[in-house]
Each structure stands twice: as C-alpha cells, then as structure tokens.
Nucleic acid binder design. Structure first.
Lengths: 348, 348
DNA sequence: TTTAGCACTCCAGAGTCAACAGTGCTAAAA
DNA sequence: TTTTAGCACTGTTGACTCTGGAGTGCTAAA
C-alpha cells in the first residue's frame, strides 16, 4: 500500500495480533482485549492509536462505530506476506500425512488423497487436480476391442497419468488391427504431446491419402473417434471437505455460490491454473478470488503446483474463508508438494 | 399403520393437500388456508376435524398448539405410497434429460451424468455409483509395463466397467511376460467373477507349486500385487448438487452431517446398496434414513438400481430433505433407469 | 354430518430499555 | 515526543413487554 511507510515494527505486531485473534475468535477485536493478552504491556489507549493508524492505512476495518476492528483484505495480505518466511509443520503431523500417502502408486491416486488430507487439516475445502490437457507427453497407448464398434483406448502419459475412454467407432475393427495401430502410434509418437501427435497424424494421413493401407485406415478411424483427444473434461478433479464450510458461521448465500462453483469442474481447473502457474515455485496465497471469479470474492486460495522435476503434474489447494489458519495450511500444502516430488521420483 | 381403517377418501385428500402445500410453502398449514384453496368447498371447521383425526393417527404433527399441521414421517410415507402409481414426466423434460445423455459411451460416464442431471432437476443431491465389487464378471484384462516394477493393470468387466490400477511389483517383468500372463487369465477366466477368478487362481498356483514355469510365476506375482482386487474402494461414486441443500432453510448442523456422510464414499455405497437391492424393480422411496444411518434421520432417499437386462451395473438416487417434490423426482429416477437400459442395450 | 361462532393459545414482530464493549479525544505523565 | 489515564459518546445486544394474527378445540345450531 502507499501508506506502508507509516507501518513500523509495533504496528506490524499489533496487526498480526489482531488478525490472529480475529481468526481464532471470529469477533471484532477491540483495544482492551488486545491489551490484556499482549506480551509487551501496552495500554489500551496506545493500541487504540495504532489501530486508528492501521485503519487509516486500509489494513483494518470497523463494522460500525463502537465495535472492534476486523482485518481488511489488504490487512490479510499484509499479514500473510510477513508470514511467508516461516514454514514448518509439527513432526507428528508430518508423520500423519506421510502415512496417508503410504502406498500411493500413481498421480491420480496421490491427488485424491491430497484433497482428502487437505480437507482434514484445514478449515477449508481440499482441492486437487491432475494436470491433464493436450500438452501432456504421450508415453504409450493401448486399444482393446470391447464389442461391436466399441473400443477401449487406454492412454498413459509421461507423467504417469492414465486415462481410459470408450470409443464408439463407425466401423468394426478386429483386435489384431487395433494392436497394429497402437504399435504404430507408440513407435512413432512416444514422447510427443497429445496435441502434436494428433496434429501430425492428421497431416500424415492427409498427405498419404492415396497410398492408404489397412493400418493407416485403422489409425485414422481411431483418431477420428477421439483416441488422442484430451480436451477440457479430461483432468481428474478431487474435491473434499465441503462440510468444513458449514462449521463456521458464514453467509449462507455465499457458501452456496462457492459450493456451486466447486461443482463445476471446469471452473476449478480454471481457478487453479489461473493462480498456480507453471513457473511459480512456492506455495501461493491468494486472498480474495474476485479477480478470476467475481462471485468468489472473500474466499481464499492457498495452493501450489505439484511437480516432479520440471514437469507440472497437478495442482493442489485449499479454498476457504478468509478466517483460516494460514500458517498451518501453507505449511501443509508445501509439505505435500515436497512429498509428491519425493514419492514420484522414488518410483520412476 | 394400525389406524389406517379410519382413513377414508376425504382424509386422504386432505392429507395430500397438506403435504403438498407444506412442501411448496415450508410453513405449517392451517385449516383456514386449506379451506380457501380446496376444490371441494369444505369449511375450515370440517377440515379441522379431519386434521385432528389425522394427527391422532400419527400422520400429522403440530409444532405447537396454535400452529398449523406438518406431515410426520409416517404422513410422508402414506402420501408417497398413494402416489407411486402415477409416474410420468413432461415430454420436454424427457427430451432435456435425453440430450444430456447423448453420446454416453460407458457406464462410468453414464453415472457421472446421472448425478449431474439428478442434482439439476431435484432439490436434493444427485448420487450415482457403479456396481463394482468382487462379484463382477471379468471380461478381459490387460497389463502394461510402465517403469521398473510398475505395471498398469486394466480390467474390463462384463458390464462394461473399466478399472485401471497401477501395481507396484516386487520384481520387474518384461512386457512379453505380462502379455502372456494376461492372455492366460483372459483365456481361462473370462466370465468368471473377479472374486472367483482370484480364488481359483490362488488354488491352482498352490497345487502346482512344484511345476512352476515362468508364466505361472508372472501370474502369481501380478495377482499378489492386486491385479484382480476389486475391493471396497473400487466402485466409482458421483455426487453432485450439494449446493442445493443450502437453498432451503434447514438446520446447519444436520446439513453438515449429511455433507460429511456424502464425502465418505464408503457410506454412500453402503447406503445405496442397503436400500436399493438387486431384486427390487421400481423406484424406491425411503423416508427417514435412520435405520441404516442414524445421523441421517429426516433425510429422504429416492433411487433405483440401474440394470442392463438382469445385471445391476449401478445405482442412482437423490438424497434430500423430506420437503421435496417426490412425484417429480421419482419420475426422473425412473426415466433415467429406463434410459440406462435402453442406451446400454443399443450399444452392446 | 357439517358449519358457524367463540374463547383460548402461541408465535412473530415492534418498541423500549439498560448493560456493555468499544471508540475518540483531551490532558496529564514519562 | 510518546504513552497513558480519564471521560463522554455511540452502536449492539439481549431481556422484556405488548399487540395483532393465525390457528386450534369445543359447543351449539343448521
């Protein structure tokens, strides 16, 4: 803020104290209350003066004249900024989390457990998505004939994501043709992104249209039925902990819009990719989601991308009310991302 | 109820009227209000008498002395029972539903859309699960080596359910061995239930322990890693429409327990299989879930199994407050089950 | 058997009031 | 110059009261 110069050490401490008491009690906090539980013994009057300054700087708000102060959105931001250095978790909690992830075999599984853990240890909703999307590198594909004109396509990406999809074909192909087609794709496009593979395949098919052989016809048919599609609906999305929202006293209407938003999987993906982009390393805290989603103002996102080496394989976050334990949630998110990296490097 | 003999035609009509006005208004309904909107012109006094009878029979309740009447759980049951004959849906609504299911390729997909549709057209939560479980008949299995000691197993059941799972092996097998193992299992156990297949395999392995060849060793290793396991966590579970719950005025605490229950996927499966058993044909309405889940008393389940021919491939239901549009929801559930049967028979 | 009338009950909302927590300001103390 | 004590002022909250209205149950008449 422009007024930040006026914020000295004492102001910071008082702001922190206010935010923390407000988070734990939920009531506007007054100078007297603060004076009582304050380490340095400042009188209520002094605190009042500081509070007036902070309010003027836009970091605090006052519900009405004779009430205590409540942190403003800016106030939360300032608080969190000052916090972000200190990140650690109680060892026994680290242990608990680690136990939950014991035996995790693949990314989907990991993400599912992530949303669960996050919902347990935070006051918000645990959200986790796999990266999905057309940018994924192809590891390998397999086709299996299920019934007349129905084929199961199983696509495995480099990152270890598995996606299966039942294709409805316009003609019936025997298993032997499917195997050949799969082999062709695997041999030629291993490591390509799904997007590129599909495009290249398309153009090859067009070029050589004259000299079609049976193999290429199968491949074309499979592509047309969407074997390589990995469009919008494809990422896996895990949401858990919606019940947490009802614990706190909150506006019903707002909770409802949040719940509704969480049910539109599209929007979750948007939200997470909007705020947790690829380059960013650490845990990110976004206070007030109104930029990306106007109806989710006054909610908070604490999240990070899950990467194995350089590649982003998913994103995880907690979405909750402004009144939540930032410190703790940030630590947990951070710890889980580290765990992710570790578990996935161990096993590949 | 024991008192049913005292319930004549007029009583029934008045009960129905009370239930319906209460569902739409949410307020206890009094004799005067009812008298005004009643087709046959009965006076408030007459209605009062009938209401007293119904209350005595346990079908109505009175929040307090000078308030109107509210249907009791028994009252709802009676109301629904009388209703169950008439089931039809507006043609344009049938159309809408059908559109949503357009292009559905597999059971999982169908169930996902089901939960979505149900959440849209009801005032409750749309829930759908695939049948899963160890009883499923095996159609075919495929193994794919992913990395050192990591194998992807894809299992397709008779009903068209696809389940993939990454196995962590204790030794590394080349793809060729995996293919042989898959072929062995497919040739020997096609049509068997997963449970039986696993058991039989187990015993064969034990018998012939002496004359182990490479093939059987692979098979054993795969089985041990859980290739055929299809235990508790395996069914797919789709829940949507939790936001609907917040629309109605309801006790926060109760909503919370419901939300929490819906997040424990175990319990959803239990709930649905408890009430929607295999033999039962039609839509089932359970008013008051307290038998199976004490904490979900006062909620209602309206659901049905989804079958293709004789086999049950999934279950679908709406879970919501007692105050909901029974008629409509029942029709929708019924329509979707018919659609399921149709779509899945078309395509196999 | 149905209806009109009446006394009675209880709730919901409006209004009043006092206690209370908190503020801002001023003047004194450090 | 900074901190603190004191004091007047303000808005909220909960308790209390009161009143109108909706609804009931009962009785007596149609």
């Amino acid at each position: 803020m422009a007024n930040s110069p006026s914020i000295g050490r004492r102001e910071q401490e008082i702001l922190t104290a206010i935010v923390e008491t407000f988070i734990s009690t939920g009531e506007p906090v007054g100078s007297r209350t603060l004076a009582r539980r304050n380490p340095e013994h400042l009188s209520a009057a002094t605190i009042r003066n500081v509070m007036a300054d902070l309010a003027e700087a836009g970091l605090l708000e006052q519900p009405h004249t004779s009430a205590g102060r409540v942190p403003s959105v800016e106030g939360y931001r300032y608080y969190v900024e000052r916090l972000s250095g200190t990140v650690k978790l109680a060892p026994e909690e680290e242990k608990t989390i680690e136990d939950v992830f014991h035996g995790t075999a693949d990314v989907q599984d990991f993400m599912e457990r992530t949303s669960h853990v996050l919902s347990l240890i935070s006051q918000g909703v645990g959200v986790a998505v796999t990266a999905g999307g057309p940018k994924q590198g192809l590891d390998h594909i397999h086709f299996q004939r299920l019934a007349d004109q129905k084929v199961l396509a199983v696509v495995v990406t480099r990152g270890g994501l598995v996606r299966d999809r039942v294709l409805r074909m316009s003609c019936d192909l025997p298993q032997s043709d499917l195997d050949l087609a799969a082999r062709y794709i695997n041999e030629n496009f291993r490591g390509w992104s799904l997007e590129d593979a599909q495009r290249e395949l398309q153009s090859r098919l067009e070029c050589e249209r004259s000299e079609y052989d049976k193999l290429m016809r199968s491949v074309e048919e499979l592509c047309r039925s969407g074997a390589l599609n990995s469009d919008a609906d494809s990422p896996d999305i895990f949401v858990e902990g919606t019940a947490n929202l009802l614990a706190r006293e909150e506006d019903r209407q707002r909770l409802r819009t949040l719940l509704r938003a969480l049910e539109e999987k599209q929007r979750i993906v948007q939200l997470l990719s909007a705020y947790l982009d690829t380059r960013q390393e650490a845990v990110r805290v976004v206070i007030g989601l109104e930029d990306a989603m106007p109806d989710l103002s006054n909610f908070v996102l604490i999240g990070a991308p899950a990467r194995s080496g350089q590649e982003v394989l998913g994103r995880l976050a907690v979405i909750g009310p402004t009144r939540m334990d930032y410190q703790h949630t940030m630590s947990a998110v951070s710890y889980i991302t580290r765990l992710f990296d570790k578990l996935l490097n161990d096993s590949e």
